[in-house]
Design a protein around this nucleic acid. Sequence first.
DNA 1: ACGTGCTCCTGTAAGC
DNA 2: TGCTTACAGGAGCACG
Length: 284
Amino acid sequence: MPELPEVETVCKGLTPVMENREFLSVTLNRSDIRFPFPDNFVKRLEATTITRLSRRAKFLVAELSSGETLLMHLGMTGRFSIDTKTSPIDPDATNPKHDHVIFVMSALHNEQGAPTIYYNDPRRFGFMELLAVGETGRHDTLGPEPLSNSFSGPVLYEAIHTKKSPIKTTLLDQNIVAGLGNIYVCEALFDARISPLRKSCDVSSEECDTLCTEIKRTLDLAIKAGGSTLKDFAATDGALGYFQHSFKVYDRAKTPCPNPDCDDTITRIKQSGRSSFYCLKCQK
DNA sequence: ACGTGCTCCTGTAAGC
DNA sequence: TGCTTACAGGAGCACG
Ligand SMILES: [Zn+2]
């Protein structure tokens, strides 16, 4: 599951082979992944040029010369791989039966061969949407980008101080703050010393300041590390992220709490169907 | 309106 | 060696 830092890594990898290039061909190997592909998907993409590729939360956003917008979401197991003459794909890295979309992009004049981009997604929780000019998409109701100035302690406090649901669940809500997932919420709550079970309305404004700071710091570090590689995340060139070596609590049940003044171990609990990892002594 | 839980799907690992 | 169960980065949807 790619979260914000992983999607950022993917976006950086795709930009040089997608931005300012034309779709020479688009191949769909099935009619749906999480959702059906948009009507006339291939026809609406072929011969258009991507004028800009960017990331919004966990979405990749490609603005097209046609005025339409291609939205791509990786779900849990979505992965893009780039095959070029100079940097050929590792054929053993992914199972080709889960290659659902293939983009062939135009070559630059000093390049030999067109870059080919494979979208592979075993669980098919990812999706692609094509928005007509002015059409709203699933990314329109998202909360603030956590790394932008529009996300701050006071903004977080304002958004959560009336909510009765646990802070863990609230931080996963993309309409509150957009881009966090299970890993980085667990890590940020540990660094802010707040229990994932705490009611959101019981988190003080001072704690929101701390939490906001820790969210930004954790995401920054993870982006610098190229994201986290769990089962199947890799950058578009196959490179692995290494932030997973820096996890303090995520997937570390029964291991010692990393705080030097603490002798407790990390506990795993379930909250709304998903694992939370935390230290009972350090996080209240 | 809000909060919780189920669901989509495949792959892997653990337990018996 | 099976077979069965639990769990995995997400988030839309149906309930109460
Ligand atoms: Zn501790």
